[in-house]
Design a protein around this nucleic acid. Structure first.
Length: 436
RNA sequence: GUCCCCGUCGUCUAGGCCGGCCCAGGACACCGGGCUUUCAAUCCGGAAACGGGGGUUCGAAUCCCCCCGGGGACACCA
């Protein structure tokens, strides 16, 4: 095969949504798999709708996903090329002027065949097509024309794009033909549908790629999720970036549209959180602790590193996103923990003195691990003649603010003796106050 | 409306080109159970699909035809 050159060609009229991201991903993987070139081409010929902000968003999204490009172009910087090709079309009698615009004459009859790498052979009746404007009255080129010119000039070998472009393909084919140019190969990938099974659009909610980043989705999880929408490799679900580059090809791409399933994304995200080395994940968690207002940077840094890492390691198993994880780590930091609504019945008045004894015992320990805390706690309970079960949940709730979480002694160790004692005493005081 | 595409568990999919290995496999979600100081993880188990109808064939999810359903495109948007 000739050296592969593919492009992702978004129009900068809004944020990059998951459908576009998936198209970019397929192009990128195809290029990397074949050792080819991946080009980012901004299709900003519609100057009224294109914005620089959107370009920044698209770039930030691709960077986050780790899709690096080898060449970058903006269509508006290539108007001279479009002009030249337009003149050529005019010279050849394939285009004409009318209403101040330049039109391309489509054939009146016959059939145009598109040999698509994914859809297969598709036939179009030429009578379905009307002549199309290739240069607007302001001189700017329109999509179908600019696309042909740029794909030609850039030496694009494979056009991998969304299914909605399939009907555009015969039009473009005629422009290639009129210019005596060899068209690239086409691969139209099925659309991603929203839960209501219609084309993904803004009304489907948080579909901006960057929004998922903000919600605490890992880039690798997003990539893994997107690639499995429309592509498969046997029964494998989890793929590293290297595996994707190794396995990805167009023959693994399906023909039917797929529905975006957020639950699977969340599952994948947890899987990837568990696969991320703890120090690296901890760094991300730190960022989210700050972003979510759970803790100030210096508070995070004040935690003993081993304790923070252990917390991240245990909490990630119970979190779907970095945001979840950050919120579940609130109890690691000084300050009152909010008690769950239904915690009242757990906190019986007779627990007050028990909490005080426990506080005193735990406080004596210096940076204890779970095992040391456990023996200290068990010793107190034995002395008082109480089973662990009687105090486990109340203690957990008072210290962590939640009925659920890692093992009790892990939780106590994570919070540290100081906070544990402080919260037990506070609870004991409240119980006493209510009693009296 | 016209044209085009698609149709396997709720969802993502394997299988379909080269019919039998598929009374359809995996994954997410769901349900039940074990483990446990809670939750999660994990383990065990369960429910869950070839859109319908005709053919072809000894045999069809796989091939053919019709129907139905869903989606997309029909701009001086991309």
């Amino acid at each position: 095969m000739e050296k592969v050159r593919v492009r992702f060609a978004p129009s900068p009229t809004g944020y990059l949504h998951v459908g576009g991201a998936r198209t970019a991903l397929f192009n990128w993987l195809f290029a990397r798999h074949h050792g080819g070139t991946f080009i980012l081409r901004i299709e900003d010929t519609d100057r009224t709708r294109s914005t620089d902000e959107a370009i920044d968003q698209i770039i930030a999204s691709l960077r986050w996903l780790g899709l690096d490009w080898d060449e970058f172009y903006r269509q508006t910087e290539r108007f001279h090329l479009h002009q030249r090709y337009a003149q050529e079309l005019l010279r050849r009698g394939a285009a004409y002027e009318a209403d101040g615009a330049l039109w391309f004459s489509m054939p009146k009859g016959g059939v145009t065949v598109v040999e698509d790498l994914i859809a297969g052979r598709v036939e179009f009746q030429n009578r379905e097509f009307k002549d199309l404007v290739i240069l607007r009255s302001d001189g700017t080129p329109t999509y179908n024309f600019a696309c042909v010119v740029d794909d030609t000039e850039m030496g694009i070998t494979h056009v991998i794009r969304g299914d909605e472009h399939l009907p555009n393909t015969p039009k473009q084919l005629h422009i290639y033909r009129a210019l005596d140019l060899a068209p690239p190969k086409f691969a139209h990938i099925p659309l991603i549908l929203g839960p209501d099974r219609t084309k993904l659009s803004k009304r489907h909610g948080a579909l901006s790629v960057l929004e998922y980043k903000r919600q605490g989705i890992l880039s690798q999880a997003m990539v893994n999720f997107l690639v499995r929408l429309g592509w498969s490799h046997g029964d494998q679900e989890i793929f590293t970036r290297e595996e994707l580059i190794q396995y990805f090809d167009l023959n693994g791409v399906g023909q039917s549209p797929s529905v975006f399933d957020e639950q699977k994304l969340l599952w994948l995200n947890r899987e990837w959180m568990r696969r991320t080395p703890v120090p690296k994940l901890a760094e991300m968690v730190r960022e989210f602790l700050v972003l979510e207002g759970v803790a100030a940077p210096e508070q995070v840094d004040a935690l003993p590193q081993a304790r923070f890492f252990r917390a991240v390691e245990l909490l990630r198993d119970r979190s779907h996103t970095l945001v979840d994880l950050a919120h579940s780590a609130r109890f690691l930091f000084p300050g009152e923990v909010p008690l769950p609504e239904d915690a009242r019945e757990l906190l019986r008045p007779e627990l007050g003195p028990v909490f005080l004894s426990l506080a005193a015992a735990v406080e004596k320990l210096s940076d204890p691990g779970p095992a040391e805390i456990e023996s200290a706690v068990r010793a107190v309970l034995e002395r008082l003649g109480l089973p662990l079960k009687a105090v486990a949940l109340p203690m957990r709730v008072v210290v962590s603010g939640s009925r659920v979480g890692p093992g009790l002694f892990e939780v106590l160790a994570m919070a540290g003796p100081k906070l544990v004692a402080e919260r037990l005493r506070l609870a004991a005081t409240k119980l006493g106050a209510e009693k009296g």
